[in-house]
Design a protein around this nucleic acid. Structure first.
Lengths: 350, 350
DNA sequence: CTGAAAGCGCTTACAG
DNA sequence: CTGAAAGCGCTTACAG
């Protein structure tokens, strides 16, 4: 059904070699010849057979994106960002979702990627030593989104500093008892490796340097989801010491936390301030003060890194850093004087 | 660097043909020979070169998923569902995000898909006649998620019936003035084709058959996002007639609407009931009554359809229907008696 | 600037 | 059950 190179050659009255060269715009073909060939190709609706050219060139024209799942906000954004850059460069994207531990094992152990892509982009996965080795054995450029092995280019965000700035905002507002809702990745492959530790470190650093003491009861970890955030906030507001402000390590967790506060009659920000992390699409809708990390831009940057490595195979791996910024909305305010807080609490208990 | 078929053949002391047959588990190879070949392949770490086999067989071992963007909840779910089924069948997924109108044009007009995949899965796109024709000319099975041309298999949801059931719930609760927040896709390619019209039709059918009259002021369309939902709800509560309940055509719109109600001091469900559509991950968190449409399952079903078409090329296109169900949460309740409503409104205005 | 030929790494009738 | 040979549709030195 599809026309072949030879048909175009016959129609244009040249050899297949010339057709090949003319159509790919490689230099060394007379302008008139090139035009004649292109016209002939258009007439028969010729489309180059990718399998043929891949075999001949050894290039697949494809970049693999490896991701825990496409079904979560963060990864959807990252895929979209990286995908746009990749397609902009004329390459295809092959999407590998790990799904679960078995899927992860399968992809890495069984050479699932071998020969299928010219480069691979790993999004937010804590790569094990053996996984890193398997990726290296692929013999193609690899870039990662998030902290990765030194042998790969990477795109990072300074999570600790970003968390510190969020905390400082709370501290400058006058808060003296600040809780943390942190991410506990557990063994869930789909949760990726949103650097939870760096954000906790930022919380602790800011709290300590403000002269406040760290209290384990004020640090509640849970799974990175609205439900996890709700559970963590429930523990905070029923714990031994009630914070006047909370830093949540992700917006999704903050959303769940906000809901618990609302159900409990605890007003935001009057009775409790809350800051998230992400600047998720819904953060603006619920007026959540949050740390913006432009995930789309991170995906784009990662794709550019891998494209650069493809263009310049010898180059050393580089690390690109995407800036974050605090977005102030209406979920943060100075703490209320104690009396008003108690009154508000009484009202709630009616 | 990678070992070739011939190396394995030499090592196992057989011909390349036999290696090829043995490794792919095609019948007609002596058991002992097969084992010897597999052992030799394992020893040299042989991995079949996909370009070579693709050219020889004409099969790519790949299914293309065409989607407006991976950066929206609905499509992330659908990609994950379809992807799991496709990978389960041992095939790769090639992801084509349209991005914008230009990207859409490029993919369809420039034979972007030709020869790259054994089948294509189109997720929620209103295909034009020429796009349909171009897909047919690909000569591979095509399946769509959502309403599509009769020549392709499709997975649908009965949007009208689902909307009607949501409305009936509101009507049975005693609501007599019910607003609609509908989806206005406009010209945004990334919004896909969530069948907005069918949901509006369901709203109208239920309202009419309950003996209530349709009022254009009660139908507010906007873009399918939290911001759009917020804008539409703002118009509803500042319009000539104040509804006691609202049906939102998507959960994202409902989230925005809920936020506006909260800001306005209109209590849900005491002063206003609201039903969404999707059963988005966050719906449970905000206690939103909604129509569950299992998008993951829709993606899986679409992938199964395309796999079936691949296995049985002659078969006629089929349509699979994924059931929806109303999930009752705490955003719906009977309307308050008029007096209490007025009191509540007064309080708000203080 | 152009063409004939070899080759990319497999698979598959065909023959034995 | 096994092997030699042709072929899948391109690209690319090489020669002219």
């Amino acid at each position: 059904m599809a026309a072949s190179l030879d048909e175009v050659a016959a129609r244009a009255g040249v050899s297949a070699s010339t057709v090949s060269r003319a159509l790919r715009d490689v230099p060394g073909v007379a302008l008139r010849t090139r035009e004649r060939v292109k016209a002939a190709a258009a007439e028969v609706g010729y489309v180059s057979n990718v399998s043929g050219s891949r075999l001949a060139t050894g290039k697949t024209g494809t970049i693999a994106i490896v991701v825990p799942t496409a079904a979560r906000w963060f990864f959807g954004q990252a895929i979209a960002g990286a995908g746009a850059v990749i397609r902009g460069a004329g390459l295809d994207v092959l999407l590998y979702e790990l799904g679960d531990a078995a899927g992860r094992q399968r992809l890495f152990a069984e050479h699932g990627l071998r020969g299928r892509a010219d480069a691979v982009l790993v999004l937010s996965l804590n790569l094990s030593g053996s996984e890193t080795r398997l990726l290296q054995q692929l013999g193609v450029p690899v870039a990662v989104l998030g902290v990765g092995p030194a042998s790969f280019s990477s795109v990072v965000v300074n999570d600790q500093l970003a968390a510190e700035s969020a905390l400082r905002h709370l501290i400058n507002l006058g808060h003296e008892v600040i809780g943390l809702i942190g991410i506990d990745n557990g063994s869930d492959v789909t949760s990726g490796s949103v650097p939870p530790i760096a954000r906790v470190a930022g919380y602790r650093a800011a709290v300590s340097s403000a002269g406040m003491s760290l209290d384990p009861d004020l640090e509640q970890l849970d799974e990175n989801s609205a439900a996890g955030g709700a559970a963590a906030m429930t523990r905070l507001i029923s714990g031994p010491v009630m914070p006047t402000a909370v830093f949540a390590s992700s917006d999704e967790m903050a959303f769940g936390a906000l809901h618990v506060l609302r159900s409990a009659g605890i007003r935001v920000p009057a009775d409790m301030s809350i800051v998230g992390f992400d600047n998720h699409d819904f953060a603006a809708v619920v007026d959540l003060t949050t740390v913006d990390q432009n995930v789309l831009a991170q995906g784009q940057a990662a794709a550019r890194l891998v494209l650069a490595a493809l263009a310049n195979p010898g180059a050393a791996p580089t690390t690109a850093s995407v800036p974050t910024r605090l977005v102030i909305r209406r979920s943060t305010a100075p703490p209320q004087p104690l009396r008003r807080r108690l009154e508000a609490t009484d009202t709630t208990q009616n």
